[in-house]
Simulated assay, not measured.
Amino acid sequence: MMQTLKNSQLVNNEINELIIPHEKVAHVHKNNPLNHALLVLIKSGYTAIPVLDHENKIQGQISKAQILDSILGLERIEMERLNEYVVEDVADPDIPTLQTDSTFGEALMRSINYPFLCIVDENGAFIGILTRRSILALMHRYFQQT
């Protein structure tokens, strides 16, 4: 079965049709206050979102866990610290990116450890995201047809 998948057209297809465009993606800017990032995360229902700079280039990702970890004191959660930090103080700068001409096989491999992959153009500008969910849905459809 895996050999069939490896030789199939699926892994060589481009990922364009699976990309969620940046206009529909919850994100924050690196200079936003941490309380804003937490609000966006809570309202969106996501556990992590992309972090962008003023040129809309990917700077990393931020998660609820990172925010909570940054305000966790020895005795209590120090909510006042939400106003003392900005997103780039706690964001994870290590986030995998792909370009629009990347193959499905590349996306599948990189999505193993991440809930989403950021898609960038040749200048590094944010195009959108590719979710692990969309990758798995396509795999499911593929296996239903074979």
Rank of each mutant, 00 (worst) to 15 (best):
M2K: 15
Q3P: 10
L5F: 05
N7A: 05
S8Q: 06
V11F: 07
V11Q: 06
V11H: 09
N13S: 13
N16D: 10
E17L: 12
L18S: 13
L18H: 11
P21R: 05
H22T: 12
H22K: 14
V25C: 07
V25K: 05
V25D: 08
V28I: 08
H29N: 13
H29Q: 13
K30M: 12
N31W: 11
P33F: 14
L34R: 04
A37T: 01
A37I: 00
L38R: 00
L38Q: 04
L38M: 06
L39H: 14
L41V: 03
L41D: 03
I42P: 05
I42T: 15
K43T: 10
S44D: 05
S44I: 06
G45S: 05
I49G: 02
P50Y: 05
V51N: 03
L52W: 03
H54K: 09
E55W: 03
E55K: 02
N56T: 02
Q59H: 00
G60A: 04
Q61C: 04
K64S: 03
Q66K: 02
Q66G: 04
I67W: 02
L68Q: 01
D69L: 00
S70D: 00
S70R: 04
S70C: 01
G73A: 01
R76H: 10
E80F: 03
E80Y: 07
R81Y: 00
R81H: 00
R81A: 00
N83P: 01
Y85I: 01
Y85S: 02
V86G: 05
V87N: 01
E88F: 14
V90F: 00
A91W: 03
D92L: 07
D92S: 10
I95W: 15
P96N: 09
T97C: 09
Q99T: 11
A107V: 12
L108S: 14
M109S: 11
R110Y: 15
S111H: 09
I112P: 12
N113C: 14
F116K: 06
L117D: 10
I119K: 09
I119G: 12
E122Y: 14
E122M: 14
E122V: 14
N123R: 14
N123K: 15
G124K: 08
A125K: 15
A125V: 11
I129K: 05
I129M: 06
L130F: 07
T131W: 06
R132H: 11
R133G: 09
S134D: 12
I135L: 15
A137R: 15
M139L: 11
R141A: 12
Y142M: 03
Q144V: 11
Q144P: 06
Q145A: 10
Q145R: 13
Q145I: 12
T146R: 10
T146S: 08
